[in-house]
Structures are given as C-alpha cells and as structure tokens.
Design a protein around this nucleic acid. Structure first.
Lengths: 170, 170
DNA sequence: TAGTGACATGTCAAGAGTGGAAGGTAGAAT
DNA sequence: ATTCTACCTTCCACTCTTGACATGTCACTA
C-alpha cells in the first residue's frame, strides 16, 4: 500500500492534480517509488472514495485539484509511526552481478565498468538537481534534502564498490 | 521477467528442486530479489514448458529436480549481455524518510534511530554469513563474494547517512 | 486555420507478486 | 504406535504494476 501513502505524502506538502503528482513521481520520487499514470489516477479515485483526499478545485482542462483531508493526514501519520516497512528491496542490477559468473571474465568486467559509468552519471544528475534547488529551512524541505543526500552517498558507494569488484574478477 | 532469470541463474550453479530454490531465495537472494513459494513453483512450470529447464530426477517426496538446459543457459547469457536492467529500485524505507516532515522532530529522529539499529544488525548478520562461508576461488563464488560485499558496504553507508540525517532534523 | 505540443483524465488487459489453504511423504523421537 | 518435524508440491484469490489505448482542451505558431 505504499503508493497510497506516497500520494498522501505528496498531498501533505500542497494540493495537487493527478498530473502534478505524476510529475513528482517522474522526478523526485523516480528513484524511490516509481509509479505510472494509470496507477496514480486509479489510486486517486480510490483515495477520494475513502475520504482521505478531496477535490477542492476544478481547473481549465478537466483539471481536478486534490487536497489532503484530516483523515488523510491521520492515515499518513499512522503509516509512518505505527507500521513498519515490510517489503524487501529488489535490485535487478545486483541480481545480475550475482550471476556474472556464467559470463567470461571480460564480459563480467564489462558489465561492472558500465555500472561505474551509470553510477557516475546518476551522481552528477543528483548533484545538479541539488544545486538547482534552494532549500528553505522547513521540515519538509529538510527531508527532501536528506533523501537527496542518500542518493548522492548511494551512488558514490556503488561506484567505489564496482571499481573494487572489477579488480576481483580474475 | 527477473524472477525467471534468477531461477535460471541459480540452476546454472547446480540442479535443484523448487524447495531448494525456495531456500536460496530466502537466504542468499533475500535482499536482492525476494520471491515467494507460489511464485517459484509457478515459474518453474512455465520454464519447463518453455524448454529452458528440464526435470532430471524425481526424488522421494514428490521431489522434482530441475536442470538448466542449453537453451536455458543461452537465455541466461542473453539476458546478462544483451538486455539492460530497466526497473527503477523501490525503497519503502526511503519513501518514509521523504515524508518524515509531517511528524514531530522527535518522531522523525526516532525513525532514523531505528534505521541506524536495523542497518547495524543487517551489517552484523552479513559479517557472520561472510565468515561462515569458505569462498573457494571459482568465478561463481567470486560473484557471490562481490554481492555480499555490496551488502556490507550498503549497510555501512546507510548507517553513516542515517547518523548524519538525525543531526539535520531541527 | 491547421497543426503541434503541453496539459489533463480515464480505462482495460495482462503480467508480476502476495498470502494462505490444502495435501502428501519420510524419518526421527517419544 | 503415534506424533512431530522437515520435506515437497499444487492451486487459488487477491492486489499491485505495466503498457497501451482512448479522449479531449488550451496556447502558440507557421
């Protein structure tokens, strides 16, 4: 049910339409909890039916602006404080590394070298994103900053690890 | 289609039954690509129908031992060399961090403190696992070692990051 | 005025993943 | 002899996720 809570979380920052939320999922949440358009619109309808969000404005092109209700905020807080993350993370990248042994050493090193490049690129992208945002000091913003820092550290770690791994393959 | 390839990968190491594979998913692949029993047995049937694996022995308790076929090995190699990982990673833990701003600073710090503990525990578990395995020098084993090292570094990174993050919340 | 691109939503089929029920065998311990 | 535990498979109902199709508005520009 994480998509549900991701939507509630985004709406806790400011009211938004499905289209706005879709953009958030494509940018800030892309590497945290990706979601597609169909999923978002479907879930928004359900959330509205459940009374956790409500339509507070209708704009020009059929645009519907949703706002978090009190019940929605309560549900979000409940999720954060009373439940634990259960899903284990899945990483297709790592899964591939696990089976690199069926390839020749050259092929395996090639894969890891690719990975180094990808990590560097991702790191650069995040660095630019970081610089383009002016983080005002509120609590929400602090959490965005913290999440971005995670990405930065993650990519740095991954690059160092992949460099080490290349040397391990004989 | 990653589950499919995870199964082919495990069977490339040695023939195994659904039950054996289930145990692999619960241990070595638990933090890479978790899968449930129903998923595994279903996929094994499909893989056998597709001729990528075949039943090579039937044991005592209805046990069926599957072996990778040549077609299966080819498919595994094709997946590793010709296709790219597409799925973005999903992290419920990080998603929660992103929305920690709706909580009080104490609650938010509490969550991050929990995370530090979890990371330390996970790190310890992996360290013990590492020590209990005697890594012989073949290529498959090297990849297992590399994957485990990733976990070690990942948890260390996560702990440091969470410690830093606690200090960021005012 | 016709076309393009950003804005905006809705729906559906198919595939992937979850959780549990159900059933059966073999070996070991009480 | 019985029970317990580990072994082992199959099936089902459900939710989540993906990708594609369908539809329409508004602003700009060639």
């Amino acid at each position: 049910m994480s998509l549900r809570h991701a939507l509630l979380g985004l709406l806790s920052e400011r009211p938004a339409s499905g289209y706005d939320l879709l953009k958030s999922f494509d940018t800030s949440l892309a590497n945290v909890w990706p979601a597609t358009q169909s999923q978002i619109y479907t879930e928004l309808s359900k959330l509205a039916d459940a009374g956790l969000i409500s339509v507070t404005a209708e704009g020009p092109r059929g645009r519907k602006e949703y706002t978090l209700t009190d019940a929605g905020l309560a549900e979000l807080r409940h999720w954060l404080t009373e439940t634990k993350p259960q899903r284990n993370t899945r990483s297709e990248v790592l899964l591939r590394v696990f089976f690199l042994g069926v390839l020749t050493p050259e092929q395996a090193r090639g894969y890891l070298t690719e990975l180094i490049k990808l990590s560097e690129q991702a790191h650069e992208n995040l660095r630019h994103l970081d610089e383009s945002i002016d983080w005002d000091g509120d609590n929400l913003s602090v959490c965005g900053r913290i999440t971005l820092e995670y990405g930065l550290r993650f990519n740095a770690m991954r690059r160092e690890w992949a460099e080490w791994a290349v040397g391990q393959i004989r």
